[in-house]
Every structure is written in structure tokens, then in C-alpha cells.
Design a protein around this nucleic acid. Structure first.
Length: 833
RNA sequence: GCCCGGGUGGCGGAAUCGGUAUACGCAGCGGAUUUAAAAUCCGCGGCCCGCGAAAGGGUAUGUGGGUUCGAGUCCCACCCCGGGCACCA
């Protein structure tokens, strides 16, 4: 018999050629049979093409491909496309450093991604490939922007923006980390005033929150989105200031979640950015101090200002406002612990029931008043001599009964008082119930070159005018110098910038900002459905066929930004009549990180595992299979070269045994018991893998196929060639989604057929059940023996079997059985005394 | 500080509904094959006691308690690791 050696370098390209040549994974729109119900859209997050694909890419596309194949073989037409999120800063920074045009470096990287994906054998419909930097794509990104602009959902305003001094660009709030550093380059972020484009995502806060209940996403991702949206219920309450001009009082609304503590408000605080701060302090003895304080506060970094541990600071404005519930005049302050971006930029301070206000009050000697009686303060053993120290137990943020407030409310439980006080405010015109969100509008302006140009013309007469549809796309001009100088590099392309107003025909200037790349990736999944459409972003009919995505797969690092933006786009486009669904991703799976030696892979650590090197040596099947076998795919996993070699051995054994079996001509009938055992194992594996695939448990699915293969070799001498062929072909069939090349090869050798054209195997019920099983015999919950029991035996028979088991008998000696527990099919537990 | 995950052999992990803890793989040990090695194949394996072996027994899923005939799994308290949010009124 010829020597059989598993040679992935020969096997893998051979099958890749078949799939490429026959365009096996392409699906056309306009399916006659089945319709939407039998279609399935399996999508992995599109890669940002930079350099070569890394091990994280191998993981996400291995997971996605396993799902795509499973859907195909369980009767679905599967859309499984690929594209590139091709605009972005790294390519532009590379251009600044080397002078290579971002288009060229991006093209080189895309080419290497394409090559690798083909070498990995991922079942991609290449006919729908797209890249977000192509004019044919960003033309429609611009169209969507204009649709939003037309609906008032894209707007321009001057804003204090987060500015990265190193990248010389504006960042979204989401792109600044908790310590105030740029998420990309790590530089300390500054604040700058600029006219910027925003998308009104805050209009959708409530729906983005509410619709989370309809989708099958991991609970922790939903929680992150809920926290990010940050919904708070409370009231807006008006505090009036009559100090400047009693004839023209100024009303300052504040947002509070605790209107029940209004009677405990003893001072009032404004954010340093509040536009009225300087005006209020003007002419008072505090004017100079306020001016200085505001200056210092505005120059603070986010890191300094955001530090909760930092001592509270502030300065009196020398003015007072009236507390609307009791008419008290309370002093006004400016302090940096109040944020301009949340609520109204001013707060009522209730030091008795808020930790921050309490710290501030203690520092500046302001009165602290208890207006809610908590359980602690009501304790009977409170020291009566401490009656003076009214601050005992404060600040108290829990529930309790109102005190020191007003005869109408004192003694009322605070939750009840809250509604009563809001109702009273409403009647008096001094406030109303209100809801606030932490979510901010999405700042999409970037002063960078390598992005989608914002299709707007600024006309001195007509203002911001949309570029007419027939002039789209507004193409990126060629420029010489990408270096950021505090304005967009596009501003340097004068021929391009100078244009005429589409409305009045007069001289006008093009918008020079480009869009945040998250805009590009907020709708790409729609374009895949109809990627070559030149007349529209998509044909609604194509979307009806595929959308929403049945299974989306990607890294948990996109749990907030990308997923929130994509959801927002769908809702906005649905409102504009372009979509007939609200949520883009029906189900989401987030995969964990692959680490090496317990740490994130990085060049500086020198612990990078290169997929290309692995594949060259062991083949794609080994790499793909190992990355799924390593552990549950939603968890982080540590790469081990030895572990991978184990998987390689497994695939080698499978292939070798199959190659030898395919050549076997002897047909011994086989031992009947062994035949049945092998057959049962095969059906057990079918059942096990089917269940595991439905719950993304690829690691145990692969383990089950390993068990089946072990059984094949163990029973090799006792079983017929036919049984061996069946068991091995079943193993290959189950393994196809994880290791497609070797599985296709094995399956063809054994059966002559193409495994991907076979329906998913079905386990036969009667082969999963056994007529005898091992009955576990326990005494007082401890395992004492195992005996053979008939599947149909009743409780009495099982008890009898247990009592008769040799080692059980020994433990019953001299004891009395007080209880017998029978779990048919499993165990008997005898409780003795 | 608040909100999520997670803690099981030497290692990665399994145990899907409260029912045999440690599947599968790695590393290890013993054997076969080989002049030898690699490769391959077979076998053993939590820890402790059992003089070496076997039968058997004890004990173990971060710690301490609880519920239950029975707990890795449920409840209470705590420790450690990872992630998210964080002066959001």
C-alpha cells in the first residue's frame, strides 16, 4: 500500500481553485424559491485594510465561515460577502511619513487581504466585494449624508470640540478615552472651538434604547449600549435670578433626578463654560476671581477635570437665585464639577443628599440640610447629645420620608413626594417632568484628507448648500501635501475648493472636512445586497431579500460605536422611507481576543503570531480548526503552538485513515457489536455537532469529531470498509465548516461526492438511544457502583438493581434505607441511616 | 464607586435542565516499531491513603456559610482576575 502523507500545500490550493472556478459561494438576487425565509445573511465586520491580516481576522472569519456553511447545508441560500473599510487615519499618516498616496498603500493592503482570505478558504461571494474608498461606494455615503441633511439630521454648529494635537483633527467624544487621550495615537486631547458637522443621533436615543429588547444580542453588549445612552428620568426646574435687573429676571432651568430633594437645595452651581458666568460676576467683588477660575478650568485637560478623586473647587459669582419651592435666595457658584454638555450646564446643589454637592459645601462652608429621613438617622440609639451635628449620616442618597420641606410633603415617602412636587411645579409653571440622556450628537467632521468628502458648498449668499444628486460623488481631489495644519488638507486644493453655488451660481467654496470613517461603515451591509447599482444606493427589493442580517459577527470593541451608529442609520433611513426595517442586525456574536503568552499581540512585545507563516507551515485548515478548538469563541484565548500541532495531528490522522480506507478492497463483514458501536458513535457525533453549532460551541464540536475519529481507529480491525467509510465521511462532513479543504478531500475520496452539496447529516433517533445503559448507584449521594440496566426498566427494577450492586451492598451493611431516589436513565440514590 | 464577565488537573478547556467532576487536546510517563532518532501506533494518568500492585477508601471545581437525597451548577457573604462606564446632577 502506498505511503499516505497529509499534504495541505497540495490539497488546499486544489480545492480553492474548484470554488473560485465554479464561483461556488456566489448567490444571485431574485431567488424564485423560498424567498426571504430560506435566505440567510451571515456577515462578519469588514476589515480595515492595513498591512496584512492578523490572527484576530483569522478568528472572526473562521467563526463566520463555520456559521455560513452550516446555514447553507441546512437549506439556506447564504449571502456571505466581503469588503474593506478603506478610508482612515493610518493610511494617511503613512502617506505623510513616506509620501505614498493613501490610495496606493490601501490598494496594496487590500490585495494582501484578498490573497489571504482566498488562502484561508473562506466561502466569500466575491462578486459583491466593495471598498468604502471607491467613488462608486462613497457617492452613496454622500447621498445618505444629504438625505440626513435634508431631514435636519445633519447640521453644523460651532462647538468646543476634542482636538488631537498630534493627528491635528477633531475627535468624536467616543474616540477620547477616559483619561482624555486620543484613542488612536495616545496624545493628550485639547479643547478647541470650531464649526463642525453633527448627526442628530440624540433624536433617536429613546428608540435606540427601546429597540434593544427586540434583538438577539449578548446581554453585556446591550448593557453597554444602555449605559452609553444613559437615560435618566427627573424634572427640569426653573431657578430665577433677579440680581442683574429685577425688571428682567433671568430663568435658569436645571435638570435633576431628585426633585424630591428640592427643599434641600442650598446653593446653585454653573459650569465654567456656561455663557452667563462672566456676565453674572461682572461688577461684583468676585469678578476677577471668576475670570481667573474659568480660565484655569477651560484649560484643564479632560484627565484632570474628570478625576472624581480631585478636590472640588469653585468660586462664588456674588449673585443669588430663588429656589422655586420655598422662595429662598441661594448663592450662585461656578465650579468645574458641573458639565456644560449634560442637562442645562447648571445644577441645584443639595449637599444633604448628593456626595459631590456635600464635598463642595463642606469645603466652602455652605449649609447642609437634611430633607429625607433615612433609616440610619431614624435609629433610636442615636446619641441625643449629637443633636447639634445635624450632618450625621449625610450625605444620604437612599429613600426615606421627607422632613424639613413643607407641610404638604413632610412625612411623605420620597418617591411619592417626587411625583407630588413635580406635579406642583408643573401647576405653578416652575418646572415639569423631563428625561435626559448621556448620549451626545455624533460629530462627524474630520480635518483630514483620506475620507469621504462632505458634499456641501458654502455660498456667501445661500449658506450651506447641498451638492446636487447628479454631481455626486464629490471626488477627493489630488493633493501634494497631506500634512495637517489645523485645517483640512483639502483646503490646499484650491481649484477644487473654489466652485460655484448650485443654487445662485455665484462664487462659493466647497466644504473641506471629510467624514468620520464610522459613517462609511454604518451602511455597508446594505450595499452588499445590491453592490453594483449605479442608479441608487440599493434597490428596496434587494434589501427585502436579504436584510436584516441574520447573524453578525465581530469584535466586542465595536459594542458601542459602530453598532450604535449602524442602528441609528437604519432608523433614520427607515424614517425617510428608504428601509422597511428598524434594526440591521437580528443576532450578534462577539468573539474574544487571541493573545499570546497571556498578552495582547503587538510588534513591540514581539509576540505576534502571523497567520501567513502558520498557514505556510501547517495549512489553513489547521490554523482555522485550532483557533476554534482553543476554547469558547466569545472568550479571550491564548495561542499555543503545541496546541495547534495537536490539531494538525488530528487532521493528518483523519486524512491518512480516509486515504487508506478509500483504497481498501477487502470487505470483511465486521463484528456486529463493533459495527453497531461505530454507527452509534457517528450518529452521536452528528447530534452533538448540530447542537454545538447552534450555540457557537465550536470547541466541543471539534472535540466530538475527534472522538468519532478515535473510535474509527480503535474499531478499525473489527468493522467493515463500508462502516469505516460511512464514519469517516461523516466526520469529514461535520468538520467541513471548520476545515473545508481536508474535509472536501476526504469526503470525495470516500464517496466521490462534494460535501458542500450534501445536506447537513441527520442523526437517527433510534441510534442515539441505547437499550442498555450504565446505571449509577449512589449511597447517600456518593457513587458506589455502576451496573447495566435495561432502558425500559421501571423504578422498582432499578432500585432492586442498585441494592444488588456488589459495592452498594457493602455500604448498606447494618444500615437502614430511609429513602430511595430514582432518576430513570441516570441513577439511583439510596439514603441510609 | 457603579454595571457586566470569569476563577475547575501541570496547561487550554468539558460538564447544554440540580444527577457519574475533569470529555477533547497539550505537556508528562510507560510500552510497541526502529541499528538509532523523528514520525506513527497502543496504554496510564487530579491529589492523598492503600508497604510495590490491585480491590477499595478519603478528598478536591477561589474562600466561608446555606438550601437539597444529591451543588462546579441555586441562595447569602467575601477574596482575586478581566472588561465597560465614571463629577451625567
Amino acid at each position: 500500500m502506498a505511503e499516505h502523507r497529509y499534504d495541505p500545500q497540495e490539497i488546499e490550493p486544489r480545492w480553492q481553485e474548484v470554488w473560485a472556478g465554479e464561483r461556488t459561494w456566489e448567490v444571485a438576487n431574485g431567488s424564485e424559491a423560498g424567498g426571504r425565509a430560506s435566505n440567510s445573511y451571515v456577515l462578519e465586520m469588514l476589515p480595515y485594510p492595513s498591512g496584512e491580516p492578523h490572527i484576530g481576522h483569522l478568528k472572526v472569519y473562521s467563526v463566520g465561515d463555520a456559521i455560513a456553511h452550516y446555514h447553507r447545508r441546512t437549506g439556506h441560500r447564504v449571502l456571505h460577502p466581503m469588503g474593506y473599510d478603506a478610508f482612515g487615519l493610518p493610511a494617511e499618516n503613512h502617506a505623510i511619513k513616506t509620501g505614498v498616496h493613501p490610495r496606493d498603500s490601501t490598494a496594496a493592503s487590500i490585495a494582501s487581504f484578498q490573497r489571504e482570505f482566498r488562502r484561508w478558504g473562506i466561502s466569500i461571494d466575491w462578486s459583491r466585494e466593495l471598498a468604502t474608498h471607491e467613488p462608486g461606494y462613497y457617492r452613496w455615503t454622500q447621498w445618505i449624508f444629504l438625505e440626513l441633511f435634508g431631514a435636519g439630521l445633519a447640521y453644523r454648529k460651532e462647538a468646543a470640540v476634542k482636538w488631537c494635537p498630534k493627528d491635528q483633527t477633531v475627535l468624536a467624544n467616543e474616540q477620547v478615552d477616559a483619561d482624555g487621550h486620543c484613542e488612536r495615537c495616545g496624545a493628550l486631547v485639547e479643547v478647541k472651538q470650531l464649526e463642525q458637522w453633527f448627526l442628530r443621533i440624540t433624536d433617536y436615543a429613546e428608540r435606540l434604547l427601546g429597540d434593544l429588547d427586540q434583538i438577539e444580542w449578548p446581554e453585556h453588549v446591550k448593557t453597554m449600549q444602555r449605559n452609553w445612552i444613559g437615560r435618566s428620568e427627573g424634572a427640569e426646574v426653573t431657578f430665577r435670578c433677579e440680581d442683574l435687573d429685577p425688571a428682567h429676571p433671568i430663568d435658569y432651568p436645571v435638570f435633576t433626578t431628585r426633585p424630591d430633594t428640592l427643599f434641600g437645595a442650598t446653593f446653585f452651581v454653573m459650569a465654567p463654560e456656561h455663557p452667563d458666568v462672566l456676565r453674572l460676576a461682572e461688577g461684583t467683588e468676585h469678578e476677577q476671581a471668576v475670570r481667573e477660575y474659568v480660565n484655569v478650568a477651560l484649560n484643564e485637560t479632560n484627565e484632570e477635570r474628570g478625576n472624581v478623586e480631585k478636590e472640588k473647587t469653585g468660586v462664588a459669582l456674588g449673585r443669588t437665585v430663588t429656589n422655586p419651592v420655598n422662595g429662598e435666595q441661594i448663592p450662585m457658584y461656578v465650579a468645574d464639577y458641573v458639565l456644560m454638555e449634560y442637562g442645562t450646564g447648571a445644577i441645584m446643589a443639595v449637599p444633604g443628599h448628593d456626595e459631590r454637592d456635600y464635598a463642595f459645601a463642606r469645603k466652602y462652608g455652605l449649609p447642609v440640610r437634611r430633607v429625607i429621613e433615612g433609616p440610619a438617622s431614624a435609629a433610636p440609639d442615636a446619641d441625643p447629645s449629637a443633636a447639634e451635628t445635624t450632618e450625621e449620616g449625610l450625605p444620604y442618597s437612599g429613600d426615606g420620608l421627607l422632613v424639613n420641606s413643607h407641610a404638604d410633603f413632610d412625612g411623605m415617602p420620597n418617591r411619592e413626594a417626587l411625583s407630588a412636587i413635580v406635579a406642583w411645579l408643573d401647576r405653578e409653571g416652575k418646572g415639569h417632568a423631563s428625561v435626559n440622556y448621556k448620549l451626545r450628537d455624533w460629530l462627524i467632521s474630520r480635518q483630514r484628507y483620506w475620507g469621504t468628502p462632505i458634499p456641501i458648498v458654502h455660498c456667501p449668499g445661500c449658506g450651506a448648500v447641498p451638492v446636487p444628486f447628479e454631481q455626486l460623488p464629490v471626488e477627493l481631489p489630488e493633493i501634494e501635501d497631506y500634512t495637517p495644519k489645523g485645517r483640512s488638507p483639502l483646503a490646499g486644493a484650491e481649484d477644487w475648493v473654489n466652485t460655484t453655488c448650485p443654487e445662485c451660481g455665484g462664487e462659493a467654496l466647497r466644504e473641506t472636512d471629510t467624514m468620520d470613517t464610522f459613517v462609511d461603515s454604518s451602511w455597508y451591509f446594505l450595499r452588499y445586497c445590491d453592490p453594483h447599482n449605479d442608479d441608487a444606493a440599493w434597490d428596496p427589493e434587494a434589501l427585502r431579500e436579504w436584510m436584516p442580517v441574520d447573524q453578525y459577527i465581530g469584535g466586542v470593541e465595536h459594542a458601542i460605536l459602530h453598532l450604535m451608529y449602524a442602528r441609528f442609520f437604519c432608523k433614520a433611513l427607515a424614517d425617510l422611507g428608504h428601509l422597511d426595517f428598524q434594526e440591521p442586525f437580528e443576532a450578534l456574536f462577539t468573539q474574544g481576543m487571541v493573545t499570546k503568552d497571556g498578552a495582547k499581540m503587538s510588534k513591540s512585545r514581539g509576540n505576534v503570531v502571523s497567520p501567513a507563516a502558520i498557514i505556510e507551515r501547517y495549512g489553513a485548515d489547521t490554523a482555522r480548526c485550532y483557533i476554534l478548538f482553543i476554547g469558547p469563541p466569545d472568550q479571550d484565548a491564548d495561542w499555543s503552538d503545541e496546541g495547534m500541532e495537536g490539531v494538525h495531528r488530528f487532521l493528518s490522522r483523519l486524512w491518512r485513515l480516509a486515504a487508506e480506507t478509500a483504497e481498501r478492497t477487502d470487505t470483511p463483514s465486521g463484528d456486529a457489536a463493533a459495527e453497531e458501536e461505530l454507527l452509534r458513535k457517528a450518529h452521536w457525533a452528528i447530534d452533538k455537532v448540530s447542537g454545538d453549532l447552534r450555540r457557537f460551541a465550536f470547541n466541543t464540536a471539534i472535540a466530538a469529531v475527534m472522538e468519532l475519529l478515535n473510535e474509527c481507529s480503535r474499531l478499525r480491525e473489527d468493522t467493515s470498509v463500508e462502516s469505516q467509510k460511512f464514519a469517516l465521511a461523516t466526520a469529514a462532513s461535520l468538520l467541513f465548516g471548520f476545515a473545508p479543504h481536508v474535509s472536501a478531500d476526504v469526503y470525495e475520496r470516500l464517496t466521490g461526492g462534494r460535501v458542500w452539496e450534501q445536506p447537513w447529516p441527520q442523526a437517527e433517533e433510534e441510534l442515539l438511544e441505547r437499550d442498555v445503559y450504565e446505571l449509577v448507584c449512589q449511597v447517600n449521594g456518593k457513587l458506589r457502583d455502576r451496573v447495566q440496566a435495561a432502558a425500559g426498566a421501571d423504578a422498582e427494577e432499578l432500585k432492586e438493581l442498585c441494592r444488588a450492586a456488589p459495592n452498594v451492598k457493602a455500604h448498606l451493611d447494618g444500615k437502614q434505607i430511609v429513602k430511595e431516589i430514582v432518576v430513570p436513565g441516570k441513577l439511583v440514590n439510596l439514603v441510609v441511616r
